[in-house]
Simulated assay, not measured.
Amino acid sequence: MYFQHSDEIWSAHPGLVAGVLAATGITADAAVEPLVEEFSARAKARLAAGTEADLPEIQAWRRTFSAMGLKPTRYRCASESLLRRFRKEGALPRIHPLVDLCNAVSLAYAIPVAALDVARISGDLEVRHATGDEEYRTLAGEPEHPEPGEVTFVDAAGHAHARRWTNRQSGHSAVRDTTRTVLIVVEALHASAATDVPDLLAALSDALGDVWPATVRTTMVSRSAPCFDFQPPVVP
Rank of each mutant, 00 (worst) to 15 (best):
D117Y: 11
F39S: 05
A78F: 10
I121F: 13
D210Q: 14
R176M: 06
S66G: 08
A18Q: 08
H13L: 15
G90H: 06
G149F: 12
A78G: 07
V20Q: 06
I121T: 09
R217Y: 06
P143F: 01
A191V: 12
S6F: 00
E8H: 09
R76A: 06
L101V: 01
Y109K: 04
K44H: 15
A108Q: 03
I58Q: 03
S122W: 00
P93C: 02
S66C: 09
T64W: 14
D196V: 01
A30L: 05
V118Y: 02
E57P: 14
I58L: 06
V20L: 07
D54T: 05
A156K: 05
S122V: 02
A119Q: 14
L200H: 10
L204Q: 11
P93R: 11
A115C: 07
A60E: 08
R46V: 09
R217Q: 13
L98V: 04
A214E: 13
P148W: 01
A18Y: 02
A22T: 14
R42V: 13
E52N: 02
A43Q: 05
G25F: 15
A49M: 04
E8W: 00
D133M: 05
I95P: 03
H5P: 07
P236Y: 12
R62Y: 03
H13A: 10
E126S: 11
A12D: 14
C102S: 14
E52T: 08
I9G: 04
I9V: 15
H161R: 10
G69L: 12
P97S: 04
A160V: 02
T24F: 12
A202R: 13
W61G: 04
D210L: 13
R46H: 09
Q231I: 10
R180V: 09
F153Q: 08
R87L: 03
A28M: 07
V186Q: 01
F3K: 13
